[in-house]
Nucleic acid binder design. Structure first.
Lengths: 242, 242
DNA sequence: CAGTGGTCTAGACCACTAT
DNA sequence: TAGTGGTCTAGACCACTGA
């Protein structure tokens, strides 16, 4: 089941296996999952390695541990965690909602100008803009800027039906280190208002997000324009893991 | 230096020591901190224990590791992380901004009614409302609800000049496990508009936050009404730790 | 090359839970 | 009491960095 020759660490492989079993329902909410010792024996690995795998699931909020009792699958949260670093489509998929997507501006290289808040201001960057719908209603416009040098060749990749964060991970082997986002309430411009089915001057939630990668701070910058009247945007904030 | 008889785990003690050295500037940004092996020898503990301590610092964003090179103190982030679980005053303090506070409704027991989104709806709960100012400008009104049974005796505690999250930690030994918050853009009621120096119907950012404690989900619920025109609200999102 | 962090093992003792 | 998670040790091998 586990491949110790793989470059993927054992604890990561095990974490993936357990995650899949939870997502598929094999381990259902409230149920106890096999103990650390039994998993260690079953897979022929050490208990610390099992713990390391479970640590990641605890941080993701999939399980919780009760000393003396066991480890249990958490009941899934009721809301859409939109503001995580994993990417917007991932946020919807974890809820069983399939978001609709409409490209507004296809990926292109462009020079960013007149936007001092944009870390790419004055430089060339990849740019795309897209609309997200839920249950056929427009809820979100995303402008995304990506570092032109770091993501060299991005315009050669077919992005249709692919998660942008997956492309970044699989093609460039880049995993977000952390991010900073700021929240504002702003009035919409005319063109964006039309896309979201609103009138100009309707206020929306504007989220500006900067994502940092190892040795490449701010390599992705995105601006989200969110309708909040038909859909509640939410996020889960992890606590500290013991 | 470390006390192995203490009920506080060794890795936690070491994490506190290292955190303090970073906060005090003894280890300054960019500087390499002692290697895991040297710390293990110095404190007479195992290397995995040192790693466990450093893991927490990585998750807090205080340090980052570079394989083959060492572990380094990160440069502090530039913005105010308002939407963390640590509490609002903590968010300002880490930036050197001393927020002004004005109590609107002092702590009292009240029965929550007519608010289906409030987890305390139909029950009695502690309630308080306060205004936060930055640089003498109103920026934030907070309504806070706390579980009446869990925080029994809270009304006997002098809350002036104390962080609410500190009181919860120090008096009730409760550490937030995680939280869920939802974001909306809403128009203000007349009374709150006045407090924030706005006119009625001015849209503000409304954040509803539910904080979960071990064995006490949703024991704290708060609603934040935020002006976003004079002050940008931001947060840092941690990535996954390897 | 020596030193670093990344991973992993095979144990150990403890506090706690359920029965 | 048996089984669980929480902590900790003493080692090991590897990939990687920097001199």
């Amino acid at each position: 089941m586990l491949n110790s020759k793989s470059p993927v660490p054992l604890y990561h492989q095990l974490a993936d296996i357990l995650t899949e079993r939870i997502r598929s329902g094999e381990y259902s909410p409230g149920q106890m999952i096999p103990s650390e010792i039994s998993l260690a024996k079953q897979y022929g690995i050490g208990r610390p390695t099992v713990r390391q795998a479970m640590d990641t699931l605890v941080r993701k909020g999939l399980i919780h541990r009760r000393r003396g009792a066991g480890t249990f699958v958490k009941r899934p949260e009721a809301k859409v965690d939109l503001f995580s670093l994993a990417g917007t489509s991932q946020a919807f998929l974890t809820q069983g909602i399939r978001p609709g997507r409409k490209m507004i501006s296809p990926l292109c290289l462009k020079t960013v100008e007149g936007d001092p808040e944009n870390p790419f201001n004055g430089h060339r960057a990849f740019f795309l803009s897209r609309l997200t719908l839920a249950q056929d209603r427009p809820i979100l416009v995303e402008d995304i800027f990506l570092d032109a040098e770091l993501f060299l060749g991005l315009d050669k990749i077919d992005l249709r039906d692919k998660s942008l964060s997956r492309v970044v991970m699989d093609h460039y082997y880049l995993k977000p280190e952390n991010g900073v986002q700021t929240f504002k309430v702003e009035a919409l411009s005319g063109t964006r208002a039309k896309l979201l089915g609103l009138t100009r001057k309707d206020p929306v939630l504007v989220v500006k997000r900067e994502i940092n990668f190892p040795d490449a701070p701010g390599a992705v910058y995105s601006v989200l324009f969110c309708r909040t009247d038909t859909f509640a945007f939410s996020q889960t904030i992890p606590g500290e893991v013991s």
